[in-house]
Structure formats: structure tokens, C-alpha cells
């Protein structure tokens, strides 16, 4: 039997960048279906060579302005973030900072850590945002950079794997500090 760690993760970014497809890749070939408000799904990641499994509750948030109020409330419970953009859309790349700022403001009390996710890398001939640009923005925002394509299925689990490992490491650090706690 394994021990289960839990965490709330929000995937944010402009509409249409591919957020829902990263979570449900089987949808990436279908017609666009707008996410209303927020949908929650669970990604389970086993930490190799340990008895631990991390359940990431992924909150897939609509990029539409209409739902901003819901988002601000949700973010106070979020501990991990994935900020996504579309490598064929410079506008979505420019929005990353705004999304990140809003989310970190709402979660100040419990600092989050997260991922900058470049989506739709299969569209290489239409790509306008380069790997170097992505990496440099990730560094500036203190995020880990990943690329993926829901269409060809490449690298989809990497960001969840990374987040699960970071959560596990944080947990190990904290229980260590609990065992040394004194009045």
C-alpha cells in the first residue's frame, strides 16, 4: 500500500492555448470546447523507489475574463501552478506574466511553485515563440520550463512528474522539521 500526498494545481493561461488538451490529450483532435469556470481532474504520480504517490488535483480554469472571480477564490487553495501558452501565439506568450502575477498575488500566504508550459510543439512550421524565449521567461518568473504537444503526445507527463517530485521533496523536508520541532 502506498502513502498518498495531495496537492492542488491550477493550469492557467489564455483561452485556446491547449490547457484542457494537456490534461485530457484525447480531446486535442476534437473541435474546440470552451471550458466553463473550472474543471477538476486527478493526475496520480508514483514516486519511484518510495512508498509515496502524489495525487495532483488539477484545476483546469477557463481563460475567459468572465470567470475571473471564481479564479481568485480558487487560487487561495492552490499550491502548484502550470502557466501554459501556445508556441504559435505570441499574444498568449505575452499574457503569461499577467496570469502568473494574478495567481501568485492570490496565493502569497502559501508560496506556490510551478511550471511554464509551451504547448503545441507539433506545429513547428507555425511556431513563433522560441525555446530560448520560453526558457528565459521561465527563469525570470522562477518556473520550470517544459514543452509538450497534446496532438502527438510528446512530453505530456513531464510537467506533472516534475511537480509531483517537488511536492514530495517539500513534504520530506517538512516532516523532517516536524520531527525536530521544540517549544
Amino acid at each position: 500500500m502506498s502513502n498518498v500526498l495531495r496537492t492542488n494545481c491550477a493550469i492557467i493561461g489564455d483561452s485556446c492555448v491547449g490547457k484542457t488538451s494537456v490534461i485530457n490529450p484525447e480531446n486535442s483532435g476534437k473541435n474546440y470546447e470552451m471550458t466553463l469556470g473550472c474543471k477538476i481532474s486527478v493526475k496520480s504520480v508514483r514516486i519511484p523507489d518510495t512508498k509515496y504517490k502524489v495525487d495532483i488535483f488539477v484545476h483546469d480554469c477557463s481563460g475567459k475574463q468572465l470567470y475571473c472571480d471564481i479564479l481568485d477564490r480558487l487560487w487561495s487553495d492552490v499550491t502548484l501552478i502550470i502557466v501554459a501558452y501556445d508556441v504559435t501565439s505570441e499574444a498568449s506568450f505575452r499574457s503569461v506574466k499577467d496570469w502568473h502575477t494574478r495567481c501568485t498575488k492570490a496565493t502569497q500566504e502559501h508560496p506556490t511553485f510551478g511550471v511554464l508550459l509551451a504547448c503545441k510543439t507539433d506545429l513547428s512550421n507555425r511556431r513563433t515563440v522560441t525555446l530560448a524565449q520560453g526558457e528565459s521567461l521561465a527563469k525570470e518568473l522562477g518556473l520550470q520550463y517544459f514543452e509538450c504537444s497534446a496532438r502527438d503526445g510528446s512530453n505530456l507527463d513531464a510537467s506533472f512528474f516534475y511537480l509531483a517530485h517537488e511536492w514530495y521533496k517539500l513534504y520530506m523536508e517538512k516532516v523532517e522539521s516536524f520531527s525536530n520541532a521544540q517549544l
Binding site: 502513502n3 498518498v4 500526498l5 495531495r6 496537492t7 492542488n8 502524489v54 488535483f57 487553495d77 499550491t79 511536492w167 513534504y171 517538512k174 516532516v175 516536524f178 520531527s179
Partner: peptide, 9 residues
């Protein structure tokens, strides 16, 4: 010893 939460409130 202690009991610990394993994430989220």
C-alpha cells in the same frame, strides 16, 4: 512521534 497532514486543507 506525530501525525502529519499530507497536503491540502
Amino acid at each position: 512521534g506525530f501525525w502529519t497532514t499530507t497536503g491540502t486543507y
